[in-house]
Amino acid sequence: MFQGLINALPGGISQGLMWAILALGVYVTYKILDFADLTVDGSLATGGCVAIVLTAAKVHPILAIIVAFFAGALAGIITALLNTKLKIPAILSGILTMSALFSINKIILGKRANVSASPKLTIIGRLANLFGMSSSGLDRNILTIGLCVILLAGIIAFLYWFFGTEWGSSIRATGNNQTMATAQGINTDRAKIIALAMSNGLAALSGAVISQYQFSGDVNMASGTIVIGLASVVIGQLVVGERGSFWVRLVGVVLGSLIYRLIFALAVQIGLDPDNLKLISSIIIVIALCIPTIKQKFFSNHKVGGEKNNA
């Protein structure tokens, strides 16, 4: 079993890092904007479908990934408009867009069940070619890990900078206390549009990289995305705590995504049925969400009148 786990490690780390891009997007909506956005369940697949279709059509994979990002951002903007302009509740807005994306993703794939691209056309194939490596086996995972580390470092640096700017600070205020934000002249509708565009752009970017890694994409590649993203965010929070510097918390999300994959690999290794994996995912999240509450129940009996900070 131990050997099996070791063998599963490179693939698990690749998965963990690719899905960490999504998890950072979920962090933006769930933690910063305080908006339960279910759009990612569709936009991740949109990113994957757009990227693989373009790659198969011999568009440069970097361009394909960039286009995928913007396709996802557009999906996020639609959810934000449904919520802010048409006043549809957040969760329902996300579900509506997500559901519509399922059909749109099929159209993008040209009604095929899935689309594959020749490995040499993908970013992995091109990198393998560049470094004289193979685009399969361990090499494929090493290249993916390298690519993701660079992407994640860039994304974390960007988010750290962005949420320190006047714009970013307005979005954080909107998520923290919308009445205050409005009273301070912040256009909270616009704040939501920007944050949801960013979040779903990241989800699509994640899907795009996954499709490059798989050399294929399909409409179902994103089912259960929100659960995976939330699990990573929640586990990450457990690992680094909520008090740390912003970039530490972002790195925590990446660690959360890796730990989630590790737990997953372990579950498969001890012989759990892959059909039960979604059940396991939900249980992981429930446990991760419970731990702070349980901790508080058992360890903070001495603290009196601690003010809740989430005004």
């Binding site: 954080r172 205020a173 923290n176 206390n177 205050m180």
Partner: peptide, 11 residues
């Protein structure tokens, strides 16, 4: 209501 509790005084 008047302030953002998760943000610093300066922010």
């Amino acid at each position: 209501i008047g302030t953002a509790g998760n943000m610093s005084i300066e922010e």
